[in-house]
Simulated assay, not measured.
Amino acid sequence: MTILRAWHTAQFNQQDIADRSSMTKILSFVFIVIMALHLFKPLGLPGLKKRKDFWKIAVGAVLAILVVGVSRHVG
């Protein structure tokens, strides 16, 4: 009985890790698309008025991925 429970727990943890891993991939893709769009036509949001401000989106992407990574270890 305990072997079955341990196997089920291990399977659940692997699926949970895979879901969070896909979250970082999705975030990376979304931020790359936003950065590319901003280079062609600035978004016009506060702090993102000029094309050279695309680095701010990259900083936001790094912070968002960092939050997802930290949440993996906490939760």
Rank of each mutant, 00 (worst) to 15 (best):
D53R: 03
R20T: 15
L39P: 01
G60C: 13
A58K: 05
L27Y: 00
V67Q: 00
K41R: 07
G47W: 12
Q15Y: 14
V59T: 12
S28P: 02
T24A: 13
K56D: 00
Q15E: 08
V59A: 07
M23R: 07
T24S: 02
K50G: 03
L66F: 13
A10L: 01
R51I: 05
L63C: 10
K41Y: 08
L48Y: 04
S22I: 11
A10Q: 05
T24G: 05
L66I: 09
A36D: 04
A6D: 15
L66Q: 10
H73L: 10
I57H: 01
M35R: 06
V59I: 14
S71T: 14
W55E: 05
A36G: 06
I26H: 01
A64C: 05
A18V: 06
H8V: 15
L66R: 11
D53M: 01
I26L: 04
W7Q: 14
H8P: 10
R20S: 04
L45P: 09
K52I: 06
L39Q: 03
A18F: 08
D19Y: 14
K41P: 01
H8Q: 14
K56G: 06
A36C: 13
S28R: 02
R20P: 08
V70W: 00
S21P: 05
V62T: 15
L39N: 11
D16F: 15
F29D: 11
F12W: 15
G69F: 04
V70Q: 06
K49W: 10
L27M: 06
L27K: 03
M35W: 03
V59C: 11
F40W: 13
I17M: 11
V70M: 08
K56M: 00
R72T: 12
L63N: 04
K52C: 07
Q15H: 09
S21N: 12
L63R: 11
F54S: 11
L27W: 00
K56Q: 06
P46R: 14
V33G: 04
A18Q: 09
F12A: 15
G44K: 03
I65Q: 09
T9I: 11
I32P: 05
I34M: 09
W55A: 10
I26V: 03
S21T: 13
Q14G: 13
F29H: 10
L37F: 11
A10K: 07
L27I: 00
P46A: 14
Q14S: 12
P42R: 07
F29N: 06
K52P: 02
R20G: 01
T24R: 13
T24E: 07
V30K: 03
M23A: 13
H38F: 03
K56V: 04
A10C: 05
T9M: 12
V33I: 09
V33D: 07
L39T: 07
H73N: 08
M23G: 02
S71H: 06
A36K: 08
I57K: 03
R72M: 12
M23E: 01
V30T: 08
W55P: 08
V30I: 07
K49M: 15
K49G: 13
A58N: 09
V62R: 01
